[in-house]
């Protein structure tokens, strides 16, 4: 059953088309990842889904309700964690949570109890009385997520939840996302971290230049990407001198020099290791390692979005800063 349905959704800023007639759906109870390079339209889409931006055209249905006309009803059942930790600096962690719960009309005793539980769950109970401004980046992020779920939403929108925080906090947040999902919360997640998407998401939608170019299950993406077989060999000699010889001895292969002492051999057919090992041995080359290379989600991201791996890394670093 689909809990979010988006049809022909567009958003223009003057002449600039930020989102171009996109369509996708999110199933109830799944973790849906929304991936794309900077400026692809991820945040604009999340803003339209949550009511912070008005679509130029298209239709949004969330939990059976019109996500444009009845957005205030929809906001009652969704939680939103923006890409920035935007709680109130002068208020304590506890006060922030209690205040956020009150915006959803939760009565005092319930919201105070829930705030205490969440502080404990996020290991922030000892910092509950400290002002938000005194929190570290990781603590701020955790409290912002806690504020997003204090009213126990059916759907949680998470915009870059682990960007720019320490490893331990990121690990705790990933664990929390999994736990929330296990309890039945549908999660819509945008992230720059491919590893997060790989670990957390059931399905992924790729958005490039305002268009959703692919929506698929993570496992299906992996199988699809495994169109060719690749083995990487680490050797004691340079591989570039062997290229011609290898190509003349083995048909249907392609060769890529990785470093001075390692090469990748790819083929549409299955690669048997022994003929290659014999070939290297006959040519007096010692092989120290041979490993099968499987495509990562990062490779798939690069392939689908067309964004270079170096640019992707730079984007990640830029986000961290």
């Amino acid at each position: 059953m689909n809990i979010i349905e988006v049809k022909n959704l567009s958003k223009n800023f003057g002449n600039f088309k930020a989102v171009k007639k996109i369509g996708f759906s999110v199933e109830k109870g799944e973790v849906f990842g929304f991936l794309g390079p900077n400026g692809a339209g991820k945040t604009t889409t999340i803003n339209m889904l949550t009511g912070l931006a008005n679509p130029t055209s298209g239709k949004i249905t969330i939990a059976g309700q019109d996500g444009i006309k009845d957005i205030k009803k929809v906001q009652q059942i969704i939680g939103i964690v923006p890409d920035e930790s935007n709680l109130y600096d002068d208020m304590s962690g506890f006060e922030n949570l209690v205040f956020c719960a009150s915006l959803y009309g939760i009565e005092k005793t319930v919201r105070e109890k829930r705030a205490k539980e969440l502080l404990k769950q996020f290991t922030l109970d000892s910092a509950g009385n400290r002002p938000f401004r005194a929190y570290s980046k990781g603590m701020k992020r955790k409290l912002t997520i806690a504020a997003g779920i204090i009213h126990e939403p059916e759907i949680l929108f998470l915009d870059e939840p682990t960007t720019g925080i320490d490893v331990e906090s990121a690990r705790q947040i990933r664990k929390m996302i999994k736990e929330l999902n296990e309890k039945g919360t549908t999660i819509f997640l945008t992230t720059h971290y491919i590893e997060d998407a790989e670990r957390l998401c059931h399905r992924i939608g790729f958005i490039v230049e305002g268009r959703v170019v692919k929506v698929s299950k993570v496992n299906d993406l992996m199988v699809e990407a495994q169109q060719e077989n690749t083995v990487e060999f680490a050797m004691d000699k340079s591989g570039s001198s062997l290229e011609k010889l290898l190509l003349s001895n083995f048909s249907g292969i392609t060769i890529k020099n990785m470093t001075d002492h390692s090469i990748r051999i790819s083929s549409a057919a299955e690669i048997e290791l022994m003929p290659f090992m014999r070939f290297f041995d006959d040519n007096g080359i010692k092989v120290s390692e041979a490993k099968v290379i499987r495509p990562s989600l990062e490779d798939i991201f690069v392939k689908i979005t067309g964004i270079g791996i170096d640019k992707l890394r730079k984007e990640k670093e830029g986000k961290k800063k």
Partner: peptide
């Protein structure tokens, strides 16, 4: 400026 106002705009109140 601190973007905390967004939190209020996203709350289920008119």
């Amino acid at each position: 400026k601190s973007r905390s106002f967004e939190r209020l705009l996203l709350a289920p109140i008119s």
